[in-house]
């Protein structure tokens, strides 16, 4: 069938088709056991690759599967989730086939993750300088003294005021913004090639958030690290990411370079999201279907069909292709939106 061809040709989406990606996620499916016989599929075949040095944004509503994806890339889907299918290729290895011990060596060193709620990440009984230094000691096999020197430099890099003194502080003595900086320092001290930031700035105030984002971008550029930047705040990605993927209900429905996504969005779901920010009821009405008018979701066809204002009969019967609407810009839609 024609649709299947389109899918296989375009499924492997990457920022620059010519270059080898740094990380390549292929057909990742994650399921959670549910009360019934059929487990619930939370990620429905994710394909995504990130180039060295690239910052890719991942946006989606609460429950779309963002955290599940972040954790699964590291080989540890949130319990009791299960990797039902898929591969994650990173630096010549398939992460999902590595042993627990191999994964542990990789995490924090080549691949690291920054999560929100930094206090939960930090050991309340250990000085933050020691916690940062121990990352370097474990992974890089450096001396205690060298590890402390690196930790202090990291605290400077994340712009913590009075870093010498803060080496000896306990987590409860730090503000939320400072604790988040410490967690970033821990994530970056081993100079990882790939950093996943999962809602890492959501608990912070906008003025601090702006500082932390600038810092992440600067450190990523200096270290040549690539980043998957996960957020519910679509606005951030418009200023911070090279490419953006939109996740809806466990599926990437659109991916595009930043300018294209915001200036020429192609998937009706993306248009609905952007319309929500416009504060124009008229625009919102034209890109959404009232809750009461929604039909029940159909297993076949497009997952968004019951909420899509431009759905046609074919949408309910056939799974839409991942159509390339312009170079590097894809939308999983039978009728991708055009901008006249």
């Amino acid at each position: 069938m024609g649709a299947a061809e389109v899918i296989s040709k375009t499924e492997n989406v990457s920022g620059d088709a010519g270059k080898a990606p740094l990380i390549d996620i292929r057909n990742l499916r994650i399921t959670f056991p549910s009360g019934g016989a059929e487990p619930k599929t939370v990620l429905k075949g994710i394909n995504l690759s990130v180039q060295p040095g690239e910052i890719v944004g991942l946006v989606g509503e609460s429950g779309a599967g963002k955290t599940t994806l972040a954790r699964s890339i590291l080989g540890v889907p949130p319990a009791p989730g299960r990797i039902a299918a898929g591969e994650v290729h990173f630096e010549g290895r398939q992460i999902l086939s590595l042993s627990e011990a191999e994964l542990r060596r990789l995490r924090g060193r080549r691949l690291s993750v920054v999560v929100p709620n930094p206090r939960a990440e930090l050991n309340p009984l250990r000085k933050v300088g020691d916690q940062i230094a121990s990352m370097a000691k474990i992974h890089l096999n450096v001396s205690r003294k060298e590890a402390r020197r690196m930790a202090l430099q990291m605290l400077r890099d994340v712009q913590i005021p009075d870093p010498e003194r803060r080496m000896d502080a306990y987590p409860h003595e730090l503000s939320g913004g400072m604790a988040q900086r410490v967690v970033i320092a821990m994530a970056l001290i081993c100079n990882p090639a790939f950093v996943i930031s999962d809602d890492a700035t959501s608990g912070l105030d906008v003025t601090v958030q702006a500082q932390i984002l600038a810092l992440l971008a600067k450190l990523a550029a200096e270290h040549g690290s690539a980043m998957l930047f996960i957020t519910r705040d679509v606005g951030i990605t418009a200023h911070f990411c090279d490419r953006i993927a939109v996740l809806f209900s466990g599926e990437i429905v659109e991916i595009a370079p930043r300018e294209a996504l915001f200036l020429e969005p192609a998937h009706p779901y993306t248009l609905m999201l952007l319309a929500a920010f416009s504060h124009s009821p008229k625009l919102r009405d034209s890109w959404s279907v009232p809750e009461t008018a929604r039909r029940r979701e159909l297993a076949a066809g497009c997952q968004y069909a019951d909420r899509c204002p431009i759905a046609q009969a074919v949408c309910r019967t056939h799974r839409p292709p991942f159509a390339e609407v312009s170079p590097g810009h894809f939308a999983r839609c039978h009728f991708p939106v055009r901008h006249a």
Partner: peptide, 22 residues
């Protein structure tokens, strides 16, 4: 300015033709 831009971008968007050969 943002609200006007949103209106410009979203206001003229139209469903395209069928994307696949289906």
């Amino acid at each position: 300015v943002f609200m006007k831009e949103a209106e410009r971008i979203l206001g003229r968007a139209k469903p395209g033709g069928l994307a696949s050969s289906l």
